[in-house]
Design a protein around this nucleic acid. Structure first.
Lengths: 211, 211
DNA sequence: AAGTGTGAACCTCTTCACAGCA
DNA sequence: TGCTGTGAAGAGGTTCACACTT
């Protein structure tokens, strides 16, 4: 058996979100084409993804939602839960804290780090703030395994080095700069400038196509 | 000649950013392996990308930076400039306005839209705020061709419909919900939950690998 | 000698198409 | 009949490997 494709992992996160909504509404089964519609994908893609995680359905009723949710959880969640540490309490950091807080019971933002003395030791958006020098102790104490970087570009590499040194193995970087990390660290970069410039290019292209 | 791959467009945005920095430092030429290192890519990838846009270098000196910048601009920029409209003035909206303001001379956030009366007609992060009912007039007046959506999920589809109705052809969506759009509209979705859950999965996987 | 330009191989992911099943 | 499960084909993107250039 080969590893599950990255793109499938991404979609499993989306499936789970809509499945939770469906279960709350009292639904029990779903067909691949309906699930596909809800995450803006295709029926063949859904069937292929569920095949990857070994979930099977029936031609008559489709996929059983409760079981499917459990199968996705079993693959994606750590049974002990995982902590998240966020560095950089600006607008972007606060947006993420507000948005993500309490959304996933196995995944909690446990600590925010900054250098601004006005923020340290306060609780902002439900999250305790610490000085970045406290990263080693707090990461250990709170079982933090994921680091979020929302500091300015100039500070990003330093923060990442601190995270990596304490053993963090996955980083999400919103600073518009590439990072040096060891090969066994997963880095996801979300580059805002790049997104906007890409959209601008396609806006231009699509506009020039109209007759 | 076939179209330029999406991934190449993404990297061209990154090349341009580092080229601007190099030009400011007075550099004039660069080799593919050095440029690759700066955006965390490979020499073969750089040569392939520059081939796509018809830029050529010399074995002796590499690629001429000023000319390369101009070639990327010629492909990516609209000579008249393009306006951006942002809907949803929360933390995330402000983060984007602050970060992106003045960064690209051909690409300006011209207007922010919200429904909160306290924000309307004020200038926030250097950007004039309007009520969302004013989208049609402001989009026309300011030549807005790109829409950024940072409203809550429940409001996202309505905002997108308003943008699409005024002729906007490219949308960047930060709300964690799929959008219904006509096929000739480019949509880029930046799903924060998905990013974090993906990172959590790889954190778990990488941690269980250590002996 | 040390780089570029590029056909071809390779890899990853998506879609097709159809056998099998309830 | 209308779905699922899946081998095979296709599309898109990356890397290899080497002829060519200075």
């Amino acid at each position: 058996m080969t590893a599950i494709p990255v793109k499938t992992i991404e979609r499993l996160s989306k499936y789970r979100r809509v499945i939770n909504r469906l279960l709350e509404k009292g639904e029990t089964y779903i067909f691949s084409h309906d699930l596909a519609h809800l995450i803006d994908s295709t029926p063949a893609q859904v069937r292929r993804d569920l095949m990857q995680i070994g979930h099977t359905g029936s031609p008559k009723k489709g996929y059983e939602l409760k079981q499917l949710k459990e199968n996705i959880n079993a693959l994606m969640d750590d049974s002990d839960g995982q902590g998240i540490g966020l560095a950089g309490i600006g607008y972007l950091g606060r947006a993420i804290m507000n948005y993500f807080g309490g959304r996933n019971p196995k995944l909690t933002i446990k600590a925010a780090f900054d250098t601004d003395p006005d923020k340290i030791n306060r609780v902002i958006s439900g999250c305790r703030c610490y000085h970045i020098d406290q990263i080693p102790e707090v990461v250990k104490k709170e079982n933090i395994t994921i680091g979020i970087v929302t500091v300015p570009s100039s500070a990003a590499q330093d923060i990442v080095n601190r995270f990596v040194r304490t053993g963090i193995k996955a980083i999400i970087n919103w600073a518009p700069t590439p990072l040096q990390t060891p090969p066994d660290v997963f880095v996801e970069s979300r580059d805002i400038t790049m997104s906007i410039e890409k959209a601008a290019f396609y806006a231009k292209t699509l506009n020039s196509k109209k007759k």
